Amino acid sequence: MAGVVVRVASAADLLELPAVEDAADELFRARGVLDLPAAAPAPLRARAWRVLVVGRPVVGFAVLDRVDGDVHLEQLSVHPASMRQGIGAALLGAAVSAAWVVGARRVTLLTYADVPWNAPWYARHGWQVTDDLGPELQALAAHEEELGLTRRGRRVAMARPV
């Protein structure tokens, strides 16, 4: 993670996120997942509690929200050309730091259980599968099911203590 600078996204940075997300989603398309939701537009991302980015232009980002009093990692994407350089790990560390600053007890996320760069990767970085879902996190999981994300694999909730 040396040399990776994580910062809060500017309005200009938010405009770059869809391209990073689309490029990262190509990894899923290669696995046959062709019906992912479209990348969120900048105005929608601007409503998040916090958006963290790496690079100019942006090569990785994390979208954080407040859910059940915790910090929730709604999205983490790194452009494939910039993977394996510590960017994702730096974004995770910054998410945990942001949670600590606001007194949250943990950072949560929802992800695919069996995709190598999803739950197994998060587990290597200190996240554990949890069934301790508050009402807001339960609602997010239900919304993901409505979007059809569970058709392509088992989804799990994970948490990392702050």
Rank of each mutant, 00 (worst) to 15 (best):
T130D: 13
R56S: 15
A23H: 00
R154N: 05
Q128R: 12
R160V: 04
D68T: 03
M158L: 04
A141F: 08
E136R: 11
V33Y: 06
P80H: 06
G103Y: 12
A62P: 04
R124V: 10
D22S: 15
V51L: 06
D70E: 15
Q138A: 14
S77W: 01
V4G: 04
L15S: 14
L17P: 03
L133F: 06
A123F: 13
L44I: 00
R151D: 12
L34F: 03
L147A: 03
P57S: 11
A123E: 14
A62Y: 07
R155M: 04
V67C: 12
L109K: 00
V129S: 11
A46M: 04
V58E: 00
Q128A: 14
D114Q: 11
R45A: 13
P37F: 04
R84Y: 05
A42V: 05
L17G: 02
A38S: 07
G148L: 07
V67M: 07
A42M: 06
A99L: 02
R152L: 00
T111I: 12
Q85N: 01
R124K: 15
D65Y: 01
G55N: 03
M83T: 15
E16S: 11
L137P: 13
A39G: 08
V156K: 07
R151W: 08
V5L: 13
A48G: 00
S82G: 08
